[in-house]
Each structure stands twice: as C-alpha cells, then as structure tokens.
Design a protein around this nucleic acid. Structure first.
Length: 485
RNA sequence: GGCGGUAUCGUCUAGGGGACUAGGACACAGCCCUCUCAAGGCUGGAACACGGGUUCGAAUCCCGUUACCGCUACCA
C-alpha cells in the first residue's frame, strides 16, 4: 500500500472476451482507471482474445459498451492480444536461446498418463525437468523429424518475491513452482507468457488486477527477469462475492454490468457502489460524484478482503444519485427509457419540456431506479388510467360515500383557481365542512387521479395533470363508483 | 494434498497498542414529520473467528488452529 514507483504510471485492464463485462472486471477496470486519472497516468485496454474457441466479437463489444456506459474511457488504441502472436513466439525463442527455457517433447498424452500414475500412488505430480533431457543427437533427430515440442521455462533456485501495493511483501519459494510451459506445441503462448510479453510491449508499470492472480505473479516476475525487463509494480485487489459469500454467479443474480443498466441503475451510482467494494476513502463519506472519487482515490484505501455484492445497497446508492444528479443530465439519461416504455414521443417530451422536468423533480426522490421512476410516471402520460386493485380496495371501500366525496371535490375544484395553494385551502375547508379527515378526502382522490395509492403531494399531482384531465378523472371515478347516491 | 491470500455488526466499512462501554452506511424495527409513498430526522438491536503469546495495556503486533477464496493445465 504505497505510492507507485513512477510519477505517471501506465496501467491496463485486460479482460478476455468470453462473456459479458462482469461486475468484478468492471470494478478492476474502475480501480485502474481511477488510479490513472488520479495520477495523470495512462489507462489502456487490452482484449485477451488468444482463446479463439471462447472469444467472440460480441463479447468484445459488450466490454466496450460496458466500460463506456460506466464512463471509463481508455487511452490509446485498444490492444488485441491475438495480434501479437509473432512477438509472443519471438520472446519464447529468446528464452530458449538464452537458456532460461528448454524444449520439451513430452506429449500431452504422456503428461496426462504421468499425472494419473502419480495420483494413483497418492503423490502430487510435479514436472521432472529430466524428462525433457535429451542427448544432443536425439534432439537433433527429433528436430529434423519435426516432432512437436513445448517450450518450458526453467524455474531457477531461490525465492521470488515482490512488494504488493495492497498486500505488502509476498514471497514464493521457487521450488513450489513447476517448470511451466511458455509456448504450446502449436506455438501459441500460454497465458502468463502472453501477459508478460504484452505488458512489456505496452510499457505497463503498474499491474492492478484481481487477487486470483497472486499465484501467477511469481511466474510472471521470473519471465520479466529472464527477458531482462524491469518488473512493474503489482497491486492485487480483492474479489467480489455474492450474498452467499461465494463467487458471484449468474445463478445468484445479475453479474453483467449490462444487467444493471437494464434494471435502471445509473452509471454514476454503479461506479460509486463498485468503488466502495474493496476501497474506502478513509472517512464516512459514501455518496460521491465522479470528480470526488478521483480526488479521494488513493492506493492506501485499497482493501485486502473480498467484498459481498449487496443489491439493496446498490439500490439505495442509486436512489441517492437519482436525487443528486443534475436534472438535465438525469433527463437525458432517462429519455430513452421513457420512449421505450411508450409513455411519450421524443417530440412530446421536447414540447412539454418544463412540465416534464417538474414531474421528474417530484418523482426522482421517490424512485430508487430508473425503471421504477418510469413506472411511477405512467399516470401522468397515459390517456386511460389503470387502477391498482389494492389501492382501490383500500381507499374506495365505501363506494357511495367515496363517490359523494369525490363529487364534492370536483364541484369545489371547478370554481377554484388551478393553483396548488388555492386548491389546498379549498379542499381542506371542504374536508372540514364534510366532517372528515383530510386523508379520507385526499387518498380516494389520489386513486382517482393516478390509479395508485402512492404519488407526489396531491396538489402537485393536480397541477401536473392540469384542470381538464384532473376533473375528467374525478368524474370518471364517480361514475365508476356508481355515481352520487 | 502442496503453496499463496484473507478474517470487525446479516452486508459495505472506520480502526493501524491506550481516544473503543468498537464509529458510520445499507438492511431491519420503532418513533417524528405527514394527504399517501418516498426523502429527511431521531432511537434501537447487531461484530473484533478461535487459542496461545508479546506488552503495564491488543480489534490493532507475533505464532498456531479453523473457515473461506485462489493457484497447482499444452485454460485465461
């Protein structure tokens, strides 16, 4: 947990395009981005598409879209790992030439058999370097014959250690590291080799990634040393778990950032929430804007413990951001959702812009998600009301009496100025005159106006709906209730 | 199995030897506000995994145990 060793570090996020952008990956990207933006460093994106069988263009697109949605912009061109195959091979051959690696003609089948045998004996299989040792004549013969071989790294004696920026010193005795394969027999690189080769080529000075890579790190450091390259800083951040404490999975809720987008979570809230999973600003501040986050971010606040993803808290956070986001910005984000729900057309929203903003102001404090807000906005756009059964059952219980109350409300309102204060005075007077509590008048009215039991203040609703619609709805309610007795 | 990492309320976390009868937030319960729902305010229950040390003194340092996670592939 110290400061990086260069004033302007180069960092990267390196996902493999084998699915959607996972929230864990998104959080890794966020921390890399935050660090780069905080320090004036560079944030790069590398798509690790070497696993052709599992990589898809669609996944690559999903990663771009997810990052863009979150507002995580990357610098320079995107690097596609698959395009660097030649360099991966060259680096492996360099290792071979310098003696840091050797050819191994053992076939996958043989290896498999050896492993099974060891297992049967109750032993742990470790690759014995002598297996690959060949007489020079034999080696030449095999080479001439074109026998396939892998290139294995010759792990030296000693200990490999580094000062992890979040964990402090971590050390691995080299004897626990097998001579690992660097280049497969088809001359494609193995993960650790491709990563190191690319990170070197990209000039990465700080590798920040999930702590599931801790045990890969010594192998990578060995590779840097063998290649004669400077070793970058490493920062291993904790994983994100599901509510059951296990790894986040599709089975137990949404894992793709796109899922949260569709749920109506704001990017700023998602970013804020994710940042607080594995990082703490050090004080009690929770809700932060993007600028505040960058200001407050520091490697010191990076935590070691895996965090559990709590949807309830995300929703609360989203509610906070719904309230705090500048109204114009919120409106712009909301617009597509409103259009998609069929509440209004683009033209209508533009035409009634200030009315729409007023509605938004009233709904934003009572909605936790964008989709929730759209649902609540429905009665203000729809021509025909749909009545919520529970609301009707609760507030329109006594039909004749309710019809009477609502009829008197309509009559009163017809001669009242269409102004919130004026209407409030009039209706409160009316309730008193009829000898009932205001709730007995306002609640049935709310159902008549919105079809729902919850809404903004009833006088705001009247103003928002306007005179004609309001009176029309009240009359319709009276009819629906069987008319005035 | 071996190696590595982690361990404070249900959850996110503050805490880095005495300020801790352990603070904040989400969630939960109650109250206030109130035309409803939110928002907001107040109150409450709720945690230092266990065992040894070190020390005058440990949530904080060390060791062990346990639990969880990761790596241990010609996966990434």
């Amino acid at each position: 947990m110290t400061t990086p060793n260069t004033p302007a570090p180069r960092l990267r996020f390196a996902p493999s395009p084998t699915g959607y952008l996972h929230v864990g990956g998104a959080r890794t990207a966020l921390f890399n981005w935050l660090w780069a933006r905080k320090t004036g460093g560079t944030f790069l994106l590398r798509i690790e598409d070497t696993d052709k069988a599992r990589s898809t263009d669609e996944s690559t697109r999903a990663i771009f879209e997810g990052l863009t949605w979150l507002g995580l912009d990357w610098d320079e061109e995107v690097v596609f790992q698959g395009a660097n195959l030649e360099r991966h091979r060259r680096d492996a051959d360099r290792l071979l030439a310098s003696g840091y690696a050797y050819r191994d003609f053992t076939t996958a089948e043989e290896l498999d058999r050896l492993r099974k045998d060891a297992e049967a004996r109750g032993e742990t299989f470790t690759f014995d370097r002598r297996l690959a040792e060949l007489h020079p004549d034999e080696l030449e013969r095999r080479l001439e014959r074109g026998d396939p071989y892998t290139i294995r790294f010759r792990v030296p004696e000693g200990t490999t250690e580094w000062h992890d920026l979040v964990h402090g010193r971590i050390a691995f005795p080299n004897k626990d590291i097998d001579d690992f394969i660097v280049l497969r027999s088809d001359r494609t690189p193995i993960y650790n080799h491709a990563v190191v080769s690319d990170d070197i080529a990209m000039g990465i000075t700080l590798v920040m990634r999930g702590d599931d890579h801790i045990s890969n790190t010594p192998k990578q450091i060995l590779l840097y040393e063998a290649l004669g390259e400077p070793i970058p800083d490493f920062a291993h951040i904790p994983m994100i778990h599901g509510m059951d404490g296990k790894k986040l999975s599709k089975r137990r809720g949404a894992v793709a950032v796109g899922d949260y987008q569709h749920m109506g979570i704001l990017p700023s809230a998602m970013r804020n929430f994710l940042a607080l999973l594995g990082w703490s600003p050090g004080d009690d501040v929770e809700v932060m804007s993007q600028a505040e986050m960058i200001t407050r971010f520091s490697g010191e606040g990076l935590l070691k413990k895996a965090a559990v993803f709590d949807l309830k808290k995300l929703e609360w956070m989203n509610g906070q951001h719904m309230m705090l986001t500048p109204i114009a910005e919120l409106e712009a984000y909301l617009r597509p959702f409103v259009l998609q729900a069929g509440l209004a057309t683009e033209a209508q929203l533009t035409e009634r812009h200030s009315w729409w903003l007023q509605l938004l102001e009233l709904l934003r404090v009572r909605a936790r998600t964008v989709t929730d807000l759209v649902r609540q906005a429905q009665p203000y756009f729809a021509d025909a009301l749909t009545y919520d059964e529970a609301a009707v059952a609760k507030h329109w219980k006594d039909a004749p009496a309710t019809a009477g109350h609502l009829d008197s409300v309509a009559t009163t309102l017809e001669t009242t100025e269409w102004d919130a204060t004026a209407m409030e005075t009039a209706l409160r007077t009316l309730a008193e005159a009829r000898g009932i509590g205001t709730g007995k008048l306002f609640q049935p009215l709310r159902v008549a106006l919105t079809g729902m039991a919850e809404s903004p203040g009833i006088f705001d609703v009247l103003v928002l709906l306007g005179r004609d619609t309001s009176l029309g709805r009240i009359r319709a309610a009276v009819n629906r209730l069987g008319g005035v007795p």
